[in-house]
Design a protein around this nucleic acid. Structure first.
Lengths: 119, 119
DNA sequence: CAGTATCCATCTGGATACTG
DNA sequence: CAGTATCCAGATGGATACTG
């Protein structure tokens, strides 16, 4: 990537960061790390997510080509979700940032304590 | 990092992602890539940012120990901001994600067109 | 089971005006 | 120059009820 031609983030990149930065996306992507999962299965494993937000998050991921949705014609309904290849590369990349966050969580917490102690 | 002990994102990581995913943080961090910059200088180079949001964003970064703020006792006031060492590692790591976003922006745009064409 | 539909509280950030 | 203060619109996401 040529940084020299650009001095702020492009709109498309902003768009992807908005997605990745939202409340549930990375969590859902992470839950799909080892293969396909069912809707209710996902819901159970992501603490605190509402049915609505799981649906919204999965739809967005599907729309972006990061997750594939498979409906099985059975009763009761069975729907599986799994990462596409692109979705897997996102997980891999985003994980670096999550890893950074974990490695620096303590430093950041300390910095905040120091900062808040000043006034 | 041991993934096996955890099946969702920790609160602290969530916290960092909220910061990184907000509207201006990465842009500000990026503007500081080559060294210290002044407030108004930053404002000019980040298209669309309001004075309020630049202040808020810089304060948050400072509070987290990612940016250092230096006030020079001159008139008119002069305040410089620069990345700390930790801030530099954030830039480096976040950049991988931005790079991913750029590399896949086209694929995602196409996926959306396909998805939206279905109904 | 896997959703949709509605409503509503909260949060984020933009506009504007003022200041040491 | 480098902020702070106030107000407000729109986006985000949670609760709840209903359905093929």
């Amino acid at each position: 990537m040529d940084l020299s031609v650009r001095n702020d983030l492009t709109c498309q990149v902003r768009d992807v960061l908005d997605r990745v930065g939202d409340k549930w996306t990375l969590n859902v992507v992470y839950q799909l790390r080892d293969g396909s999962r069912r809707f209710t299965d996902l819901k159970r494993s992501i603490e605190g997510i509402s049915q609505r937000m799981l649906t919204v998050t999965l739809r967005n991921l599907e729309r972006d080509g990061l997750v594939e949705r498979t409906v099985h014609a059975v009763v009761p309904p069975r729907v599986d979700y799994e990462l596409t290849e692109m979705g897997q590369t996102l997980l891999k990349t985003a994980w670096e940032l999550i890893d950074w966050a974990e490695r620096h969580a303590e430093d950041i917490a300390h910095a905040r304590v120091r900062y808040d102690a000043i006034p």
